[in-house]
Design a protein around this nucleic acid. Structure first.
Length: 661
RNA sequence: GCCGCAGUGGCUUAGUGGUAGAGCGGCGCCUUGGUAAGGCGCAGGUCGAGGGUUCAAUUCCCUUCUGCGGCUCCA
C-alpha cells in the first residue's frame, strides 16, 4: 500500500462464511485484527506454555461460555505506538458487533495467527487487559482466555447470516483521539462576555434571550444581528443546500473531488483562473505593504518541541502523516515555516516591523466531517499568511492598524462593499481590554459602523487580541475572511529574537494576518453575495476583473464568423471569446447569460458594415453601439488596478470540453 | 467524529420487489436565425460501491463512500 494511494480492499472467499475483508490504510495507524464469531458455545483448554507465558491460576486453565461473541484478537507491532487508543478502538468495534448480534457475552481470545508482524508480549498483554476491563465496565460478561499459552478450543458457530459473520476489522480512527490539541480542549472552558462596540466608543453588553440576542437594536444593522446570533447562540436552523456550492458547479468553477479526502476540491479552468487572480491580487497587495514573500515546506516534524507545543495552543486538528523516517503533520498555516525561518534570522529593531509573507497552497486542517461546507470550510485551502514581527506592544498595535487598512482596501478591490457587505468582530482578553481599549476604539472608528466585541476572562490561546472581518451568507452563517492577531507567546516558543537599541536580545510581538482569509472563502462570499442579490431581484454577476469571460462575441449568423475571429485579436488585456457554434442567436445569448458573461457583443450584417459592436450589458440589459476599442477601454477602466490573466480556455467555445455536462 | 436526510445516463430528475422513462447536454441532418431554449433523428444507464435476504433487488437489510442539515468548530 502506498502512501496517499487508494484503499486496497482485497476480498478473500471463505467457504460458507461471509467474506473476511482485509483493509490497510496508508499511514501507520493501529491495525489490530479481530476475527468475530458468534457462537452457541465456546470452550478452551490450556495445553503448553509459550516463552511469553506468565503463571496463571488453575481456574483460568479451562473456560467455557454459552452464547457469546468470540473475538480472536491479534495485537500487531504497529499497535504498540498507541496502546490506549488501539484498545479503545477495539472495544468500540467489539461493542458494535456485539450490539449487531444482540449479545452481552464476549470472549477475548488472544490469537497470534492473524498477523505476520506481532506486537511484543508486554504491550499486547496490556492491550488485552484494557479491552477486557473496558468491556466489563461497559456491562458485558467477559471471558478472557490466558495470554502466552498454547490452547485447544471448541467452538460452535451460529448459523444465521449476521451472527455467524466473521470479519477482520481495521481499527484505526479512534487511536487519534489523544492528538486533539490542548487548545481545542481549552475552548470548552472558555468564558466569554459579548458586546456591541460602536464607532463612538459606546459599549452595549449583549445577552441571549429565547434564542435572540438582547442588548442592542439591530434594526439598521441586520447582518450584525445575524452575525451576533451566529457567534453567541448555539443552535441554528437551516435546511437548504448552500447556494454557492450549486453555483460553483453550475458555472464550472469548482467541484467536489470524491477521489480525494472530503474538503479537498478540484478547480476547473474558470475556477482556477478566478482563484489565481485572487491569489495574485492578495500577494501583490501584501508585497506593496512591505511583506517579504517566502516559501516554506508544507509538512513538519511532529516531535519538534516548539512545533509540538504550538500545536497545542492552536485550536485545530491536524492531518498527520508518516514519512519514511518520521511522523509529520501538514501545516494549517504558514506560521511554522516563517517562525522556524525567523528563529535563524538576525534582526535589528531598526528593521522592524519585519514582515514575512507566504501564500500557502495549501494549508491543511483535519476538520470534523460535519464541519465541512463547500468553499466555506475546507480541509485544504489556500491562505495568505503575513506575520509582522514588532518590537513592543505599541508597535504591534499601530502595525495592526496599518494592516487593517490594507485588508479593508484589498477586500474593496476584490469586489466587496466595505464595510457594508461585512461585519467586524474584535476578541480580547479582559486584561488587554482594560489596559489597551484605545486600540479597539480606534479600529471601531476606522470601521465606521458597530461591531461585535468578545471578551475572554483569560488568555486561552497564543494571542491576547484578534479581529476578524466576517461575511454573513445567504443562510445567515458567518465566515471570517480576514483575521489578524497579537501573539505574545510564539517568539519565546520558537526563540525568535531581535537586537534592541541597547544591543540586547529581545522577544518581539508577532502579528498573524490573513489579509483576505482563505482565497476559497472569497470565492464563496462572492458567489453568496451574487445569490443574495439575485434573491433581491438583481442579476447575479461576478466582479468584472474576475469574470472568466469578460466579452463574448456572438455572430448573428455564420456569415459573420470570420469577421468575429478577426475582432478577437483586437482585444488586449481583456478576456474575450467567441460563440462559434451554429446555435440560433437566441440560444447563443442564453448560453452567455447563463455563464454570467458581463458583456455580450452581437455582430450581424449591420455591425460588420458599421465596424461597431452591439453590446448587451448583463446588468441592465441595455444595448449600446460601441467600437472594440471603446469596449476595451471601458473594461480596462472598470478593472483598473486589478491583475489581469488571459482566458484559460480556448476562445472559440466550440473547442471547449464540457467539464460537467 | 456523533445524529438525521440524500445519491437513478455527462447534468437535472420520474419511477418500481420482476434489470428503467424524460428534459438538458453530446453526436448527425435540416434551419442562417437580430438579443434568455428553431426542427427532426441517434447514441448513452450493471439505478454511488460492497455484502446480505429473496425464485428474483435499482426497490428490503447491513456496511461503506460522497454530499447536505444538526451538534461541534474555523481561514
Amino acid at each position: 500500500m502506498q502512501v496517499g494511494g487508494f484503499q486496497d480492499i482485497a476480498v478473500a472467499s471463505s467457504g460458507g462464511y461471509n467474506n473476511p475483508i482485509y483493509t490497510e490504510t496508508a499511514f501507520a495507524s493501529a491495525t489490530m485484527r479481530i476475527l468475530f464469531i458468534h457462537a452457541d458455545y465456546m470452550e478452551y483448554e490450556v495445553r503448553e506454555k509459550t516463552k511469553d507465558a506468565l503463571p496463571i491460576p488453575d481456574e483460568l486453565k479451562h473456560g467455557k461460555i454459552d452464547e457469546a461473541l468470540v473475538c480472536f484478537i491479534t495485537a500487531e507491532e504497529k499497535d504498540e505506538k498507541d496502546v490506549g487508543g488501539t484498545s479503545r478502538a477495539a472495544v468500540k468495534e467489539i461493542q458494535d458487533v456485539a450490539k449487531t448480534v444482540k449479545t452481552t457475552r464476549v470472549v477475548v481470545y488472544p490469537y497470534a495467527h492473524l498477523s505476520p508482524s506481532l506486537a511484543k508480549a508486554a504491550p499486547a498483554r496490556e492491550m488485552f487487559g484494557h479491552i477486557a476491563e473496558d468491556l466489563v465496565e461497559a456491562g458485558y460478561e467477559v471471558m478472557s482466555s490466558p495470554f502466552g499459552y498454547y490452547k485447544s478450543f471448541k467452538i460452535s458457530c451460529k448459523g444465521h447470516p449476521l451472527s455467524e459473520l466473521s470479519r477482520e476489522i481495521e481499527v484505526t480512527a479512534e487511536a487519534k483521539k489523544e492528538e486533539v490539541s490542548e487548545a481545542v480542549k481549552a475552548e470548552e472552558k472558555l468564558v466569554s462576555e459579548w458586546f456591541i462596540l460602536d464607532p463612538s466608543g459606546k459599549l452595549s453588553p449583549l445577552s441571549i434571550k429565547d434564542g435572540k440576542v438582547d442588548g442592542f437594536d439591530f434594526k439598521s444593522h441586520v447582518n450584525l444581528g445575524k452575525f451576533a446570533i451566529y457567534e453567541m447562540a448555539k443552535s441554528r436552523e437551516v435546511k437548504e443546500e448552500p447556494p454557492h456550492t450549486k453555483i460553483m458547479r453550475e458555472l464550472e468553477l469548482v467541484d467536489y473531488e470524491p477521489g480525494s479526502d472530503p474538503g479537498n476540491l478540484r478547480y476547473y479552468p474558470k475556477g482556477r483562473l478566478i482563484k489565481s487572480l485572487l491569489e495574485e491580487i492578495t500577494t501583490r497587495t501584501i508585497i506593496d505593504y512591505g511583506g517579504m514573500e517566502i516559501e516554506s515546506p508544507i509538512m513538519y516534524d511532529f516531535e519538534h518541541p516548539a512545533l509540538k507545543s504550538y500545536l497545542n495552543r492552536f485550536p485545530a486538528r491536524q492531518y498527520v502523516l508518516e514519512t519514511p523516517n518520521k511522523k509529520t503533520f501538514l501545516r494549517f498555516a504558514a506560521c511554522f515555516g516563517q517562525f522556524l525561518m525567523a528563529h535563524d534570522m538576525t534582526l535589528s529593531y531598526r528593521q522592524m516591523p519585519m514582515r514575512l509573507y507566504e501564500l500557502t497552497r495549501y494549508s491543511f486542517r483535519a476538520e470534523q466531517r460535519g464541519e465541512l461546507a463547500g468553499l466555506r470550510r475546507l480541509r485544504s485551502f489556500t491562505m495568505p499568511d503575513c506575520h509582522a514581527f514588532c518590537t513592543d506592544m505599541g508597535q504591534a498595535k499601530s502595525e495592526m492598524l496599518v494592516r487593517f487598512g490594507v485588508a479593508m482596501s484589498l477586500l474593496g478591490n476584490i469586489g466587496f462593499s466595505v464595510p457594508a457587505d461585512l461585519e467586524l468582530s474584535i476578541r480580547v482578553t479582559k486584561d488587554f481590554w482594560e489596559n489597551g481599549k484605545e486600540h479597539a476604539l480606534e479600529m471601531a472608528r476606522r470601521w465606521g459602523k458597530p461591531l461585535l466585541l468578545e471578551m475572554w476572562d483569560r488568555q486561552f490561546f497564543y494571542y491576547v487580541m484578534k479581529y476578524e472581518i466576517n461575511f454573513v451568507d445567504a443562510s445567515d452563517k458567518a465566515a471570517a475572511l480576514t483575521t489578524d492577531q497579537i501573539d505574545t507567546e510564539n517568539a519565546k516558543r520558537f526563540d525568535i529574537t531581535y537586537i534592541d537599541a541597547d544591543g540586547k536580545r529581545q522577544f518581539p510581538y508577532i502579528l498573524h494576518l490573513s489579509p483576505a482569509g482563505a482565497i476559497e472563502r472569497n470565492i464563496y462570499a462572492l458567489l453568496e453575495k451574487a445569490y443574495m442579490g439575485m434573491k433581491a431581484g438583481k442579476v447575479p454577476i461576478l466582479p468584472l476583473w474576475l469574470s472568466p469571460t469578460q466579452v463574448r462575441l456572438v455572430p448573428v449568423s455564420s456569415d459573420q464568423l470570420e469577421y468575429c475571429k478577426s475582432l478577437l485579436s483586437r482585444f488586449e488585456s481583456v478576456r474575450a471569446d467567441l460563440d462559434d457554434t451554429d446555435d440560433s442567436l437566441n440560444k447563443k445569448i442564453r448560453k452567455a447569460e447563463k455563464e454570467w458573461v458581463p458583456y455580450i457583443a452581437v455582430v450581424g450584417r449591420k455591425e460588420v458594415e458599421s465596424g461597431k459592436l452591439n453590446v448587451r450589458e448583463r446588468t441592465g440589459k441595455e444595448q449600446t453601439e460601441m467600437t472594440v476599442e471603446e469596449l476595451q477601454a471601458r473594461i480596462l477602466t472598470e478593472t483598473k488596478g486589478r491583475p489581469f490573466k488571459p482566458l484559460s480556455l480556448p476562445k472559440p467555445i466550440s473547442l471547449r470540453p464540457g467539464f460537467r455536462g
